[in-house]
Design a binder for these strands. Structure first.
Length: 308
RNA sequence: GGCUUGGUAGCUCAGUUGGUAGAGCAGUGGACUGAAAAUCCUCGUGUCGGCAGUUCAAUUCUGCCCCGAGCCA
């Protein structure tokens, strides 16, 4: 008994409702794969299921972090394996649901390369390098120490340039030498991978709009205010995510409600687009263009019954 | 009704001393190994409001008309 079902899809595609239905129908245990729902108190803006739903259908990996905690794909992968194991020990099948595609990718790839955690002094060192020079300098530096790695990233991609240097300084080795890009999909589990890629982008965009208006009606701005008040002076990683970021800009008087709303909508659409790009290119998934519940139920039923 | 001003890409606007035009945003496709709802890359033909006139040539000049904004009546 080592089956795992994954249900992936872009934001606002209706994954959560389907997951609950599947969990109910097949006695599955839901494990959330959502980088914002990890956080306590980030409820409305992350479209986290309501308390009552969570009480009835427990989701693992939701509300596992305090709002000020830092997290990473590596920690996620560790936690995920523990949860999968726990579910299997209960003779049940876990249902991974979410839209954080890099997290899914990491699961499908069987984890990450074995790299050291970057210490603060190294972060500061690179930060100083950057502020004393410019990004071009960092990129040239990276090219000198590891041309192979540098070639893979764009000279404007600050995030990855910095990360490359972090890996180099932390591990004292070339990133291209210690990152194993060919981690074979480790067949720890028997997977059923389901992707939902909406066939109509227009409909998805409409759903995004409806959902945002619900969030605003439910008190998104209030939620942001409360978080700001309660954790004043602390850095909240999820505060820079879609919805929260723009709500803060509005609350700081940088824009009016109308602009905030259209900025959130645009950012959400762009997120959905990126998620769909992942979904198109992740192998070994069965793709549904619509949430045709019947087809999916039949598929899952077959998988659950199958003797492996 | 008169005067002023504007009508250019889905939106906001730039521009063409007359040779049919380009930015930002939006949208699209893509990349993705410890912040990933992050970070980054690619892609720009549209009767330049309509009709007529001048001209070798008009989106650009002229006239009339239509639509919007402001002011005066």
């Amino acid at each position: 008994m080592n089956k795992v079902i994954s249900l992936m899809g872009p934001t606002a595609s209706g994954k959560t409702d389907l997951a609950i239905l599947l969990a109910q129908e097949f006695n599955l245990e839901i494990i959330s794969v959502d980088s914002v729902m990890f956080y306590k108190e980030f409820n409305i803006g992350s479209a986290k299921p309501k308390e009552e739903i969570l009480a009835k259908f427990p989701h693992r990996m939701i509300n596992i972090l305090e709002p000020f905690e830092e997290y990473s794909v590596a920690k996620f992968y560790e936690n995920l394996l523990l949860h999968i194991k726990e579910v299997h020990n209960k003779k049940k099948i876990p249902l991974l649901v979410g839209g954080s595609m890099m997290y899914f990718k990491t699961y499908f790839s069987g984890g990450l390369s074995d790299l050291k955690i970057v210490q603060n002094d190294i972060k500061k060192l690179i930060d100083d390098m950057l502020s004393k020079n410019n990004l071009e300098f960092l990129y040239d530096y990276l090219k000198k120490i590891d041309i192979e790695f540098a070639k893979k990233i764009h000279f404007n991609d600050k995030y990855r340039i910095v990360r490359g240097l972090e890996i180099y300084f932390s591990n004292k080795k070339k990133p291209s030498e210690i990152i194993n890009y060919n981690l074979k999909e480790k067949k720890f589990f028997k997977n059923l991978n389901l992707s939902v890629i909406p066939n109509s982008r227009d409909n998805l965009h409409k759903n995004i709009e409806i959902r945002l208006d619900n969030m605003l009606a439910e008190g998104l701005l209030d939620e942001v205010n409360k978080l700001n008040f309660k954790y004043v002076g602390k850095k909240l990683p999820a505060m820079s995510t879609i919805g929260y970021k723009q709500a803060n800009e509005f609350l700081q008087g940088k824009m009016n409600v109308k602009t905030m709303r259209s900025n959130i909508l645009a950012a959400t659409r762009q997120l959905a687009k990126r998620q769909i790009t992942w979904l198109r290119h992740i192998d070994a998934t069965i793709v549904y263009e619509l949430l045709v519940y019947d087809n999916i139920l039949i598929r899952v039923d077959k998988f659950v019954r199958k003797k492996i």
